[in-house]
Design a protein around this nucleic acid. Structure first.
Ligand SMILES: [Mn+2]
Ligand SMILES: [Mn+2]
Ligand SMILES: [Zn+2]
Ligand SMILES: [Zn+2]
Lengths: 141, 141
DNA sequence: CTCGCTATTGCAATAATGTTGCAACTGCAA
DNA sequence: TTGCAGTTGCAACATTATTGCAATAGCGAG
């Protein structure tokens, strides 16, 4: 576990445990969006007796401390990834499942428009649609 | 159940049943985003023995026929609403839970931007953030 | 209008995902 | 080294959704 996360935990009176280190390292090394179950499986490759409930509790803690981000990219499942310095948004291809990251500067004038017209402050957005490979022509190949 | 939905079902060889009529009518009359459980509760006010599994199966069918839209507005729950002619998108306030509809013309240049820069065809988008009442000033009151 | 076929339903069991109570264990600070 | 509060594993539980199956009931044919 990097100095960053370790320090945050210890400063706040939490303890460093192998379980927490492993969950964090899995997320750092994968760089993907992982479900709790996927994280648990990868943790168990190195430490087989680690329990799902520990993984859930660890994720809950890391999310609370803003070290990990929880995202809903579809029904019935939560995905986790390391919280990055600069926030990002998601394009989700409904055909192949591919997920692409975009950043505030890719949003054009939408945030200003929503704030001006609706008084709504956009923080994170998810766009469902079809990616380049899956037919931008609406053909849903 | 309106002529519209009835006809679609019958044309395709499905049968009209009181259960299907009730689910459809609940969705039409509410105009809100309802969970399967809420729909079932309202159906049971008029027809108490209707079962949850029937509601789920009915919703699955109506979604498949594009009569109802299923939306994921957060983890752990699916919401249903009547599919409208003109598609819409959602602003979800993470503080008070309020959901606002916006339409394509409220999106500014985002769809064109995504298509041009990412080759991504946006179909439906969900924006998480904070509504007017819940402090556009990031104060999260 | 009646009949019969088969789509549909209710029910209970099961699945999938996440949460919690609790006794045993263990970081870590003194 | 030691003690204790934070943490874990486990099993039970909670919530949301799906499925197998026998009983029921639409609806088209006659
Ligand atoms: Mn992401
Ligand atoms: Mn809606
Ligand atoms: Zn795709
Ligand atoms: Zn609000």
């Amino acid at each position: 576990m990097t100095h960053h996360a370790t320090q945050t935990l210890l400063e706040l009176g939490y303890r460093m445990t192998p379980q927490r280190t492993l969950v964090w390292d899995v997320l750092r090394q994968s760089g993907e969006h992982l479900t709790a179950e996927q994280i648990c499986a990868r943790v168990q490759e190195q430490f087989p007796h680690v329990n799902m409930s520990t993984v859930y509790r660890t994720l809950e803690l890391l999310v609370e401390l803003n070290l990990v981000k929880e995202t809903c990219l579809g029904p019935s499942r939560r995905y986790y990834e390391v919280e990055e310095e600069v926030p990002h948004h998601h394009l989700v291809c409904e055909h192949c499942g591919k997920i692409v990251h975009i950043h505030d500067e890719d949003l054009g004038n939408l945030p200003r428009l929503l704030e001006r017209e609706q008084g709504f402050v956009a923080e994170e957005l998810t766009v469902f649609g079809h990616c380049l490979d899956c037919g931008g022509d609406h053909a849903h190949p």
